[in-house]
Amino acid sequence: MAMTPRERVLAAMKREKLDRPPVAVFTQSATIDQMDALNIYWPEAHSDPKLMCELGAGQAKVFGFEAVRSSFCLTAEAEALGCKVDPGKSDRTPMLKAHPFHFDPMEGSYDTPNLMAPEEFVKTGRPAVIIEATKLMKEKYGQEYAVIAGNTGPFTLAGHLVSTENLVFGIMMDPDKVHEWVDAVNPIIKAYCQALSDAGADIIQMSEPSASTDLLDPATFMEYAGNYVHDSLAQTKGADTVLHICGDTKPILDYMIQTGVTGLSIEEKVDSAEAVKIVNNRAALVGNVGVVNPLLQGTPEDCAAAGKRIAAAGFNVISPGCGLSALIKGENLKALVNAVKSL
């Protein structure tokens, strides 16, 4: 009997040898074309579990990708913890409007992180919606498809609460205060990861963009992000774990593996073959089709070629390298799916 998409994705997470890799969107997966096909739109789908479940299944139902995924943004946790959020539009993800906590390394003045208890957090606001959507996805689509739940990493979330620039600046001025904040958010993230797994997620994909080499010195990656990811994401019971980081991750691939996660999701700024060589089967590699080029600005042929090239390089899962732009055309996504499935 042929493998189900779920079996294929989970086998790829175990780095099993397959006739071809699965093709699935592990990052933000919704697009306008999916919204039109399903008549479900942002921003409503960000805060309604049923709508999130159906739109999150759109990558499989509309385009033939081999997974479904809950949550479309990285603002749910921050909002639950007090950030003001603009809900965005049909083509634009929500954005943070303000940071609720004071953290000023220049003045040396800092708020103390008094955050809600982890048990309360998982029942609050949009994190609770995402947990419920994950549960619905597992019930409705979990037989056939791997259910991915996306959340936000500890350094990134701490940055959302106090301003990322100030947090990064704090590393030079007052590292203890930086640790105080990342320490404070990590138990919440750990509880959230476990709640998503308990709700039925097969894979927790954590995005930690603020730990990219564009923001953090690779030499300090473990200290400010990696060790925390090890304690929260990598300890999740009952689900595979994938760490997503944007930008040129080549200098931190070893550290990302050290966190103990199942898989690494990376962008096209690292050459695919080089990434495979460095990672050397120590973790599953997920990626790294460029979101802007070729997916947004290229042709269907460009997208098909990228999928084939990355599969040939030896990636375990062929996926966009970062969250999909909602403006990406369906024909480009279909071309990617068809190219990988025909291998």
């Binding site: 620039e165 600046f169 923001l215 953090l216 010195d217 690779p218």
Partner: peptide
Amino acid sequence: AKQYFLPQVLLAAN
């Protein structure tokens, strides 16, 4: 030259 990253640049800028 990747001797400096954002934290060092922020410090110099300030």
